[in-house]
Design a protein around this nucleic acid. Sequence first.
DNA 1: ACTATCTAGTTAACAACTATAACTATATGC
DNA 2: GCATATAGTTATAGTTGTTAACTAGATAGT
Lengths: 167, 167
Amino acid sequence: MTISKKSASVHQVEPDDKEPTSVAGLELENRLGYALRRAQLTVFKHFNEAMQAYEIRPAQFSSLVVIEGYPGITQTNLAKILDIDPPRIVSLINHLEERGLALRVRCKRDKRSHGIFLSKKGEALTEQLKALAEQSDIQATQSLSEIERRQLLSLLVKIYAPDTADE
Amino acid sequence: MTISKKSASVHQVEPDDKEPTSVAGLELENRLGYALRRAQLTVFKHFNEAMQAYEIRPAQFSSLVVIEGYPGITQTNLAKILDIDPPRIVSLINHLEERGLALRVRCKRDKRSHGIFLSKKGEALTEQLKALAEQSDIQATQSLSEIERRQLLSLLVKIYAPDTADE
DNA sequence: ACTATCTAGTTAACAACTATAACTATATGC
DNA sequence: GCATATAGTTATAGTTGTTAACTAGATAGT
């Protein structure tokens, strides 16, 4: 089936019958955006497989963990923390509420805002999911040592939250 | 405006009036998928700003660089390399062709397939964009040293292409 | 109290991206 | 020459991300 191994030759004028299979050697290999996206897709694929049985998507998982950590958080604050637009939060919480994992509590002092809490069921599930997510991370990064994994994590935090990166 | 600094207290039954602003301290901070996504969004934001004047989106940039490296590559192979579905390649190449940056050449041996080439204009633009992308990467990761940036890149390659990671 | 302005949440509309199925034209193997 | 496979394309639908606009309640000034 495979016709030939890739050769490094370049600058030809005829359609190419070789089968290059990676970006190795191209400038693309040095671009952080590209590498981040590809790595993210890899890790997300594992995550989604792990969560498939629970029908939990990445944004839902993140929300559950944040609500668990900040019970009574308002939707606005949740949106800020996760850097998600407020309209997206609405359907996210709707979904969690429909499944009986979270609930909105109208705030007495400011009747416009809702505090979000996990139900007992939501708390229990979140505990499970956190363990699952950790396993998924490890599986997705088999090619990394534990030290490298931690290194990677700390470099990533420096990028997306340079202020909070362990000082 | 700001009401109060976040306190670490948790497990309350009333809506929270504190304003947590990050995932610091939460389990989420240790999840690779989350960190990768947030970091990717950060880097992409810079990239998109840099490319805005040229109306080039990330996938288009990647395509240009791969076509430059493998002139005459078929759409199928381009799809494989970038891990994009074939239908998506079609509109991508259409767009590049409409802008006079790339062109399809029907392959003589296999009249089903097209070799894709950059036009002179496409080549010139790609050179410009590559330099721009590098600058954008650096700007997006000001909080990293050059060594850390290279470290990060190599860790990411290990994840998404464990076989080709510099052996 | 009365009005204007602000904010939290929501709804709706829309663009962008992803994934799938099906169609065409060639090509290949028996 | 017939059945099957492949490259590219088109069409379609589901998901996400983005923006604008609406409602209910809050706040400040007069």
